[in-house]
Design a protein around this nucleic acid. Structure first.
Lengths: 208, 208
DNA sequence: TAAAAACTTTTATGCAATAAAAATTTTTGC
DNA sequence: GCAAAAATTTTTATTGCATAAAAGTTTTTA
Protein backbone atom coordinates (compact mmCIF):
# COMPACT_ATOMS: atom_id res chain seq x y z
CA UNK A 1 0.00 0.00 0.00
CA UNK A 2 1.43 3.32 -1.04
CA UNK A 3 0.48 6.22 1.18
CA UNK A 4 -0.75 9.51 -0.21
CA UNK A 5 2.55 11.03 0.78
CA UNK A 6 4.54 8.45 -1.16
CA UNK A 7 2.40 8.96 -4.24
CA UNK A 8 2.73 12.72 -4.09
CA UNK A 9 6.47 12.34 -3.81
CA UNK A 10 6.62 10.01 -6.77
CA UNK A 11 4.50 12.46 -8.70
CA UNK A 12 6.80 15.36 -7.94
CA UNK A 13 9.84 13.32 -8.91
CA UNK A 14 8.26 12.52 -12.25
CA UNK A 15 7.27 16.09 -12.87
CA UNK A 16 10.74 17.36 -12.00
CA UNK A 17 12.57 14.88 -14.22
CA UNK A 18 10.28 15.30 -17.19
CA UNK A 19 10.29 19.08 -16.91
CA UNK A 20 14.07 18.96 -16.72
CA UNK A 21 14.36 16.76 -19.80
CA UNK A 22 12.17 19.11 -21.80
CA UNK A 23 14.08 22.18 -20.67
CA UNK A 24 17.53 20.62 -21.15
CA UNK A 25 16.66 19.65 -24.71
CA UNK A 26 15.06 22.99 -25.45
CA UNK A 27 17.49 25.42 -23.83
CA UNK A 28 20.58 23.34 -23.12
CA UNK A 29 21.97 22.40 -19.73
CA UNK A 30 23.69 25.59 -18.64
CA UNK A 31 20.83 27.86 -19.60
CA UNK A 32 18.27 25.79 -17.74
CA UNK A 33 18.05 27.04 -14.18
CA UNK A 34 16.94 24.89 -11.29
CA UNK A 35 14.34 27.54 -10.62
CA UNK A 36 12.86 27.13 -14.09
CA UNK A 37 12.72 23.35 -13.66
CA UNK A 38 11.00 23.89 -10.33
CA UNK A 39 8.44 26.29 -11.80
CA UNK A 40 7.69 23.91 -14.67
CA UNK A 41 7.24 21.07 -12.19
CA UNK A 42 5.14 23.15 -9.84
CA UNK A 43 7.44 22.95 -6.83
CA UNK A 44 9.95 25.24 -5.16
CA UNK A 45 13.60 25.40 -6.18
CA UNK A 46 14.68 24.09 -2.82
CA UNK A 47 12.49 21.03 -3.30
CA UNK A 48 14.40 20.17 -6.46
CA UNK A 49 17.55 20.35 -4.39
CA UNK A 50 16.01 18.28 -1.64
CA UNK A 51 15.11 15.58 -4.14
CA UNK A 52 18.22 15.46 -6.31
CA UNK A 53 20.93 17.33 -4.48
CA UNK A 54 22.30 19.15 -7.51
CA UNK A 55 21.30 20.14 -11.01
CA UNK A 56 23.59 17.39 -12.25
CA UNK A 57 21.68 15.01 -9.98
CA UNK A 58 18.48 15.75 -11.88
CA UNK A 59 20.33 15.11 -15.12
CA UNK A 60 21.67 11.82 -13.82
CA UNK A 61 18.21 10.67 -12.77
CA UNK A 62 16.98 11.36 -16.28
CA UNK A 63 19.88 9.58 -17.93
CA UNK A 64 19.46 6.54 -15.71
CA UNK A 65 15.91 6.15 -16.96
CA UNK A 66 16.93 6.29 -20.58
CA UNK A 67 19.87 3.96 -20.00
CA UNK A 68 17.53 1.28 -18.75
CA UNK A 69 15.89 1.39 -22.16
CA UNK A 70 19.31 1.12 -23.79
CA UNK A 71 20.05 -2.07 -21.89
CA UNK A 72 16.75 -3.58 -22.94
CA UNK A 73 17.33 -2.56 -26.52
CA UNK A 74 20.87 -3.98 -26.58
CA UNK A 75 19.69 -7.27 -25.15
CA UNK A 76 17.22 -7.39 -28.01
CA UNK A 77 19.16 -6.17 -30.98
CA UNK A 78 22.76 -7.21 -30.39
CA UNK A 79 23.35 -10.31 -32.57
CA UNK A 80 23.17 -13.43 -30.49
CA UNK A 81 25.41 -15.59 -32.63
CA UNK A 82 28.25 -13.21 -33.47
CA UNK A 83 31.51 -15.09 -33.19
CA UNK A 84 33.76 -12.22 -34.27
CA UNK A 85 34.56 -10.20 -31.18
CA UNK A 86 35.53 -7.08 -33.12
CA UNK A 87 32.16 -7.01 -34.85
CA UNK A 88 30.42 -7.62 -31.58
CA UNK A 89 32.16 -4.75 -29.82
CA UNK A 90 31.66 -2.40 -32.74
CA UNK A 91 27.96 -3.22 -32.96
CA UNK A 92 27.68 -2.59 -29.24
CA UNK A 93 29.47 0.75 -29.51
CA UNK A 94 27.28 1.81 -32.39
CA UNK A 95 24.08 1.10 -30.46
CA UNK A 96 25.37 3.04 -27.48
CA UNK A 97 26.27 6.07 -29.58
CA UNK A 98 22.99 5.95 -31.49
CA UNK A 99 21.08 5.86 -28.26
CA UNK A 100 23.11 8.68 -26.74
CA UNK A 101 22.64 11.00 -29.69
CA UNK A 102 18.94 10.19 -30.01
CA UNK A 103 18.37 11.26 -26.42
CA UNK A 104 20.61 14.21 -25.58
CA UNK A 105 23.16 16.57 -27.09
CA UNK A 106 26.87 15.80 -26.69
CA UNK A 107 27.20 18.95 -24.64
CA UNK A 108 24.84 17.44 -22.07
CA UNK A 109 26.55 14.04 -22.10
CA UNK A 110 29.72 15.79 -21.07
CA UNK A 111 27.89 17.03 -18.01
CA UNK A 112 26.75 13.49 -17.31
CA UNK A 113 30.29 12.12 -17.39
CA UNK A 114 31.50 14.95 -15.19
CA UNK A 115 28.69 14.43 -12.71
CA UNK A 116 29.34 10.71 -12.42
CA UNK A 117 32.92 11.38 -11.37
CA UNK A 118 32.47 14.37 -9.10
CA UNK A 119 29.46 12.87 -7.37
CA UNK A 120 31.10 9.45 -7.05
CA UNK A 121 29.56 7.59 -4.16
CA UNK A 122 26.19 9.32 -4.17
CA UNK A 123 22.99 7.37 -4.70
CA UNK A 124 22.55 8.45 -8.32
CA UNK A 125 26.16 8.02 -9.32
CA UNK A 126 26.14 4.52 -7.84
CA UNK A 127 22.96 3.71 -9.74
CA UNK A 128 24.63 4.88 -12.94
CA UNK A 129 27.64 2.67 -12.31
CA UNK A 130 25.41 -0.31 -11.76
CA UNK A 131 23.84 0.28 -15.14
CA UNK A 132 27.33 0.28 -16.61
CA UNK A 133 27.85 -3.12 -15.02
CA UNK A 134 24.67 -4.33 -16.65
CA UNK A 135 25.82 -2.99 -19.99
CA UNK A 136 29.08 -4.87 -19.61
CA UNK A 137 27.09 -7.96 -18.80
CA UNK A 138 25.25 -7.80 -22.09
CA UNK A 139 28.66 -8.28 -23.69
CA UNK A 140 29.59 -11.02 -21.25
CA UNK A 141 26.57 -13.08 -22.25
CA UNK A 142 27.36 -12.79 -25.95
CA UNK A 143 30.92 -13.82 -25.26
CA UNK A 144 29.78 -16.83 -23.31
CA UNK A 145 27.66 -17.82 -26.27
CA UNK A 146 30.60 -17.42 -28.64
CA UNK A 147 32.75 -19.49 -26.34
CA UNK A 148 30.13 -22.21 -26.11
CA UNK A 149 30.02 -22.24 -29.90
CA UNK A 150 33.75 -22.91 -29.92
CA UNK A 151 34.73 -19.52 -31.34
CA UNK A 152 36.84 -18.64 -28.31
CA UNK A 153 39.34 -20.66 -26.27
CA UNK A 154 38.02 -22.44 -23.19
CA UNK A 155 40.55 -20.93 -20.80
CA UNK A 156 39.28 -17.44 -21.57
CA UNK A 157 37.24 -15.77 -18.83
CA UNK A 158 34.14 -14.28 -20.46
CA UNK A 159 33.48 -11.89 -17.58
CA UNK A 160 36.96 -10.45 -17.85
CA UNK A 161 36.75 -10.08 -21.60
CA UNK A 162 33.31 -8.51 -21.43
CA UNK A 163 34.44 -5.96 -18.88
CA UNK A 164 37.59 -5.16 -20.80
CA UNK A 165 35.63 -4.61 -23.99
CA UNK A 166 33.18 -2.43 -22.15
CA UNK A 167 35.96 -0.30 -20.66
CA UNK A 168 37.48 0.20 -24.06
CA UNK A 169 34.16 1.00 -25.67
CA UNK A 170 33.31 3.39 -22.87
CA UNK A 171 36.62 5.21 -23.16
CA UNK A 172 35.98 5.70 -26.87
CA UNK A 173 32.43 6.78 -26.17
CA UNK A 174 33.72 9.49 -23.87
CA UNK A 175 36.09 10.53 -26.63
CA UNK A 176 33.09 10.66 -28.95
CA UNK A 177 31.06 13.00 -26.80
CA UNK A 178 34.07 15.09 -25.78
CA UNK A 179 34.23 16.79 -29.16
CA UNK A 180 31.36 18.00 -31.28
CA UNK A 181 33.44 17.35 -34.37
CA UNK A 182 34.08 13.67 -33.61
CA UNK A 183 32.00 11.35 -35.77
CA UNK A 184 30.65 7.92 -34.96
CA UNK A 185 32.55 6.51 -37.90
CA UNK A 186 35.84 7.85 -36.63
CA UNK A 187 35.21 6.35 -33.19
CA UNK A 188 34.26 3.05 -34.77
CA UNK A 189 37.56 3.05 -36.66
CA UNK A 190 39.52 3.78 -33.53
CA UNK A 191 37.78 1.05 -31.59
CA UNK A 192 38.48 -1.36 -34.43
CA UNK A 193 42.15 -0.41 -34.38
CA UNK A 194 42.27 -0.89 -30.62
CA UNK A 195 40.84 -4.37 -30.86
CA UNK A 196 42.77 -5.52 -33.89
CA UNK A 197 46.01 -4.43 -32.24
CA UNK A 198 45.16 -6.06 -28.92
CA UNK A 199 44.08 -9.30 -30.55
CA UNK A 200 47.32 -9.41 -32.49
CA UNK A 201 49.41 -9.67 -29.36
CA UNK A 202 48.53 -13.27 -28.62
CA UNK A 203 50.76 -13.49 -25.59
CA UNK A 204 51.01 -16.81 -23.86
CA UNK A 205 50.08 -14.93 -20.71
CA UNK A 206 49.66 -16.77 -17.42
CA UNK A 207 46.12 -16.48 -16.00
CA UNK A 208 47.19 -14.55 -12.86
CA UNK B 1 63.04 40.03 -25.31
CA UNK B 2 60.30 39.70 -22.72
CA UNK B 3 58.58 42.93 -21.80
CA UNK B 4 57.96 43.94 -18.23
CA UNK B 5 54.29 43.26 -18.81
CA UNK B 6 54.94 39.70 -20.00
CA UNK B 7 57.17 39.00 -17.01
CA UNK B 8 54.62 40.36 -14.57
CA UNK B 9 51.98 38.18 -16.15
CA UNK B 10 54.16 35.11 -15.94
CA UNK B 11 54.85 35.96 -12.32
CA UNK B 12 51.20 36.26 -11.47
CA UNK B 13 50.43 32.98 -13.20
CA UNK B 14 53.08 31.25 -11.13
CA UNK B 15 51.86 32.80 -7.91
CA UNK B 16 48.26 31.84 -8.65
CA UNK B 17 49.05 28.23 -9.51
CA UNK B 18 51.38 27.67 -6.59
CA UNK B 19 49.02 29.34 -4.13
CA UNK B 20 46.23 27.19 -5.49
CA UNK B 21 48.25 24.00 -5.13
CA UNK B 22 49.06 24.81 -1.52
CA UNK B 23 45.48 25.66 -0.69
CA UNK B 24 43.99 22.67 -2.52
CA UNK B 25 46.28 20.30 -0.63
CA UNK B 26 45.66 22.04 2.67
CA UNK B 27 41.92 22.68 2.58
CA UNK B 28 40.67 20.54 -0.28
CA UNK B 29 39.19 21.70 -3.56
CA UNK B 30 35.67 22.70 -2.55
CA UNK B 31 36.71 24.61 0.52
CA UNK B 32 39.30 26.64 -1.34
CA UNK B 33 37.67 29.78 -2.69
CA UNK B 34 38.94 31.62 -5.72
CA UNK B 35 39.08 34.67 -3.52
CA UNK B 36 41.47 32.94 -1.11
CA UNK B 37 43.70 31.85 -3.98
CA UNK B 38 43.68 35.42 -5.23
CA UNK B 39 44.58 36.84 -1.84
CA UNK B 40 47.43 34.34 -1.41
CA UNK B 41 48.72 35.24 -4.85
CA UNK B 42 48.34 38.96 -4.32
CA UNK B 43 45.84 39.61 -7.08
CA UNK B 44 42.10 40.18 -7.29
CA UNK B 45 39.61 37.37 -7.63
CA UNK B 46 38.54 38.54 -11.05
CA UNK B 47 42.14 38.32 -12.24
CA UNK B 48 42.20 34.64 -11.38
CA UNK B 49 39.12 34.28 -13.55
CA UNK B 50 40.69 36.32 -16.30
CA UNK B 51 43.72 34.06 -16.30
CA UNK B 52 42.15 30.63 -15.95
CA UNK B 53 38.45 31.04 -16.64
CA UNK B 54 37.25 28.80 -13.84
CA UNK B 55 38.45 27.33 -10.57
CA UNK B 56 38.78 24.03 -12.38
CA UNK B 57 40.94 25.84 -14.91
CA UNK B 58 43.43 26.69 -12.21
CA UNK B 59 43.42 23.07 -11.11
CA UNK B 60 44.00 21.90 -14.67
CA UNK B 61 46.94 24.26 -15.08
CA UNK B 62 48.50 22.81 -11.98
CA UNK B 63 47.92 19.22 -13.02
CA UNK B 64 49.40 19.87 -16.45
CA UNK B 65 52.64 20.97 -14.84
CA UNK B 66 52.89 17.88 -12.71
CA UNK B 67 51.94 15.62 -15.61
CA UNK B 68 54.92 16.87 -17.57
CA UNK B 69 57.09 15.52 -14.80
CA UNK B 70 55.23 12.23 -14.96
CA UNK B 71 56.03 11.86 -18.64
CA UNK B 72 59.68 12.54 -18.03
CA UNK B 73 59.73 10.07 -15.17
CA UNK B 74 58.00 7.37 -17.20
CA UNK B 75 60.39 7.81 -20.08
CA UNK B 76 63.16 7.25 -17.57
CA UNK B 77 61.91 4.47 -15.38
CA UNK B 78 59.71 2.34 -17.58
CA UNK B 79 61.78 -0.73 -18.53
CA UNK B 80 63.16 -0.39 -22.01
CA UNK B 81 63.43 -4.06 -22.81
CA UNK B 82 60.17 -5.43 -21.48
CA UNK B 83 58.82 -7.92 -23.95
CA UNK B 84 55.76 -8.92 -21.90
CA UNK B 85 53.00 -6.47 -22.73
CA UNK B 86 51.01 -7.23 -19.60
CA UNK B 87 53.97 -6.38 -17.40
CA UNK B 88 54.62 -3.26 -19.41
CA UNK B 89 51.08 -1.97 -19.06
CA UNK B 90 50.92 -2.81 -15.38
CA UNK B 91 54.22 -1.06 -14.69
CA UNK B 92 52.91 1.95 -16.56
CA UNK B 93 49.67 1.98 -14.60
CA UNK B 94 51.53 1.71 -11.32
CA UNK B 95 53.72 4.69 -12.10
CA UNK B 96 50.69 6.75 -13.06
CA UNK B 97 48.85 5.91 -9.86
CA UNK B 98 51.93 6.49 -7.71
CA UNK B 99 52.40 9.87 -9.29
CA UNK B 100 48.74 10.80 -8.91
CA UNK B 101 48.59 9.92 -5.24
CA UNK B 102 51.90 11.61 -4.49
CA UNK B 103 50.59 14.87 -5.88
CA UNK B 104 46.90 15.26 -5.04
CA UNK B 105 44.05 13.58 -3.19
CA UNK B 106 41.65 11.33 -5.10
CA UNK B 107 38.91 13.79 -4.34
CA UNK B 108 40.77 16.41 -6.34
CA UNK B 109 41.56 14.06 -9.21
CA UNK B 110 37.85 13.54 -9.61
CA UNK B 111 37.53 17.27 -10.19
CA UNK B 112 40.29 17.06 -12.76
CA UNK B 113 38.52 14.35 -14.74
CA UNK B 114 35.26 16.27 -14.55
CA UNK B 115 36.91 19.49 -15.67
CA UNK B 116 38.58 17.86 -18.67
CA UNK B 117 35.21 16.69 -19.95
CA UNK B 118 33.07 19.72 -19.19
CA UNK B 119 35.67 22.15 -20.45
CA UNK B 120 36.41 20.07 -23.54
CA UNK B 121 37.79 22.29 -26.26
CA UNK B 122 39.25 24.97 -24.02
CA UNK B 123 42.95 25.77 -24.07
CA UNK B 124 43.73 23.93 -20.86
CA UNK B 125 41.62 20.90 -21.60
CA UNK B 126 43.29 20.59 -24.98
CA UNK B 127 46.70 20.85 -23.36
CA UNK B 128 45.73 18.07 -20.99
CA UNK B 129 44.63 15.84 -23.85
CA UNK B 130 47.92 16.42 -25.62
CA UNK B 131 49.74 15.22 -22.53
CA UNK B 132 47.62 12.10 -22.64
CA UNK B 133 48.79 11.58 -26.21
CA UNK B 134 52.36 11.89 -25.03
CA UNK B 135 51.73 9.38 -22.28
CA UNK B 136 50.33 6.96 -24.83
CA UNK B 137 53.43 7.55 -26.90
CA UNK B 138 55.68 6.40 -24.11
CA UNK B 139 53.94 3.06 -24.44
CA UNK B 140 54.16 3.14 -28.21
CA UNK B 141 57.93 3.45 -28.11
CA UNK B 142 58.30 0.51 -25.75
CA UNK B 143 56.06 -1.54 -27.99
CA UNK B 144 58.14 -0.64 -31.03
CA UNK B 145 61.20 -1.83 -29.17
CA UNK B 146 59.53 -5.08 -28.23
CA UNK B 147 58.47 -5.58 -31.84
CA UNK B 148 61.97 -4.87 -33.09
CA UNK B 149 63.22 -7.48 -30.62
CA UNK B 150 60.87 -10.00 -32.20
CA UNK B 151 58.55 -10.25 -29.21
CA UNK B 152 55.54 -9.08 -31.21
CA UNK B 153 54.29 -9.93 -34.70
CA UNK B 154 55.38 -7.67 -37.53
CA UNK B 155 51.89 -6.94 -38.79
CA UNK B 156 50.94 -5.37 -35.45
CA UNK B 157 50.60 -1.59 -35.45
CA UNK B 158 52.50 -0.29 -32.39
CA UNK B 159 50.68 3.04 -32.39
CA UNK B 160 47.32 1.32 -32.26
CA UNK B 161 48.40 -1.05 -29.51
CA UNK B 162 49.94 1.75 -27.47
CA UNK B 163 46.80 3.83 -27.69
CA UNK B 164 44.57 0.91 -26.83
CA UNK B 165 46.66 0.06 -23.79
CA UNK B 166 46.59 3.67 -22.71
CA UNK B 167 42.81 3.86 -23.04
CA UNK B 168 42.41 0.76 -20.95
CA UNK B 169 44.88 1.94 -18.33
CA UNK B 170 43.22 5.34 -18.22
CA UNK B 171 39.76 3.84 -17.76
CA UNK B 172 41.06 1.82 -14.83
CA UNK B 173 42.83 4.88 -13.44
CA UNK B 174 39.54 6.75 -13.42
CA UNK B 175 37.99 3.80 -11.64
CA UNK B 176 40.84 4.03 -9.13
CA UNK B 177 40.28 7.65 -8.26
CA UNK B 178 36.49 7.37 -8.38
CA UNK B 179 36.37 5.57 -5.08
CA UNK B 180 38.40 6.27 -1.97
CA UNK B 181 38.20 2.61 -1.06
CA UNK B 182 39.70 1.34 -4.32
CA UNK B 183 43.30 0.18 -3.90
CA UNK B 184 46.12 0.23 -6.41
CA UNK B 185 46.45 -3.51 -6.06
CA UNK B 186 42.84 -4.09 -6.96
CA UNK B 187 43.16 -1.89 -10.03
CA UNK B 188 46.32 -3.69 -11.02
CA UNK B 189 44.47 -6.99 -10.80
CA UNK B 190 41.61 -5.71 -12.93
CA UNK B 191 43.96 -4.36 -15.57
CA UNK B 192 45.75 -7.69 -15.63
CA UNK B 193 42.46 -9.49 -16.12
CA UNK B 194 41.51 -7.11 -18.93
CA UNK B 195 44.74 -7.77 -20.76
CA UNK B 196 44.95 -11.49 -20.19
CA UNK B 197 41.39 -11.86 -21.48
CA UNK B 198 41.99 -9.66 -24.50
CA UNK B 199 45.24 -11.40 -25.38
CA UNK B 200 43.49 -14.74 -25.20
CA UNK B 201 41.19 -13.90 -28.05
CA UNK B 202 43.78 -14.24 -30.78
CA UNK B 203 41.39 -13.57 -33.59
CA UNK B 204 42.74 -13.78 -37.10
CA UNK B 205 41.34 -10.28 -37.52
CA UNK B 206 41.78 -8.44 -40.81
CA UNK B 207 43.82 -5.22 -40.44
CA UNK B 208 40.94 -2.90 -41.35
C1' DT C 1 -10.38 15.46 15.60
C1' DA C 2 -6.30 17.07 17.87
C1' DA C 3 -1.46 16.25 18.38
C1' DA C 4 2.54 14.54 16.06
C1' DA C 5 5.24 13.71 12.16
C1' DA C 6 6.69 14.51 7.59
C1' DC C 7 7.41 17.65 4.00
C1' DT C 8 7.66 21.86 1.47
C1' DT C 9 8.41 26.60 1.24
C1' DT C 10 10.37 30.89 2.76
C1' DT C 11 14.33 33.33 3.91
C1' DA C 12 19.13 34.12 4.11
C1' DT C 13 24.07 33.37 3.04
C1' DG C 14 28.41 32.04 0.53
C1' DC C 15 30.66 31.41 -3.61
C1' DA C 16 31.49 30.73 -8.77
C1' DA C 17 30.99 32.96 -12.94
C1' DT C 18 30.43 36.93 -15.94
C1' DA C 19 30.09 41.71 -17.60
C1' DA C 20 30.87 46.61 -17.66
C1' DA C 21 32.93 50.66 -15.87
C1' DA C 22 36.77 52.70 -13.43
C1' DA C 23 41.47 52.95 -12.17
C1' DT C 24 46.27 51.79 -12.85
C1' DT C 25 50.44 50.82 -15.10
C1' DT C 26 53.29 50.00 -18.98
C1' DT C 27 54.40 51.30 -23.76
C1' DT C 28 55.05 54.13 -27.46
C1' DG C 29 56.00 58.12 -30.11
C1' DC C 30 57.73 62.53 -29.98
C1' DG D 1 62.01 62.33 -20.45
C1' DC D 2 57.16 63.02 -20.89
C1' DA D 3 52.43 62.85 -22.45
C1' DA D 4 49.07 60.22 -25.00
C1' DA D 5 47.67 55.55 -26.08
C1' DA D 6 47.24 50.82 -25.09
C1' DA D 7 47.01 47.01 -22.14
C1' DT D 8 45.69 45.11 -17.95
C1' DT D 9 43.91 44.87 -13.36
C1' DT D 10 40.55 46.11 -10.02
C1' DT D 11 36.02 47.63 -8.55
C1' DT D 12 31.31 47.01 -8.70
C1' DA D 13 27.20 44.63 -9.75
C1' DT D 14 24.34 40.66 -11.13
C1' DT D 15 22.85 35.83 -11.78
C1' DG D 16 22.51 31.21 -10.38
C1' DC D 17 24.02 26.94 -7.72
C1' DA D 18 24.23 25.12 -3.28
C1' DT D 19 23.12 24.83 1.56
C1' DA D 20 21.08 25.69 6.12
C1' DA D 21 17.64 27.10 9.39
C1' DA D 22 13.16 28.67 10.52
C1' DA D 23 8.37 28.87 9.36
C1' DG D 24 4.35 27.08 7.43
C1' DT D 25 1.47 23.35 5.54
C1' DT D 26 -0.43 18.86 4.89
C1' DT D 27 -0.80 14.09 5.94
C1' DT D 28 -0.77 10.52 9.58
C1' DT D 29 -1.77 8.55 13.69
C1' DA D 30 -3.87 7.68 17.93
Amino acid sequence: MSSLRARQKEDRRNRIVSSAKTLFKKKGYEKTTIESIAVAAGVSGVTVHNYYGTKAGVLLALVIESDKQLIARLNESLPRNESDIVSLAVAFAREVMDHAIANLEKDIWRQVIAAVTTEAGTRLSTAYSQLDDQLAHVLVRRIEAAQAAGALPDHLNPVHLGRALFQLQNARFIEFISSDAMTQDEIETRLRHDLVALFSVCASAPST
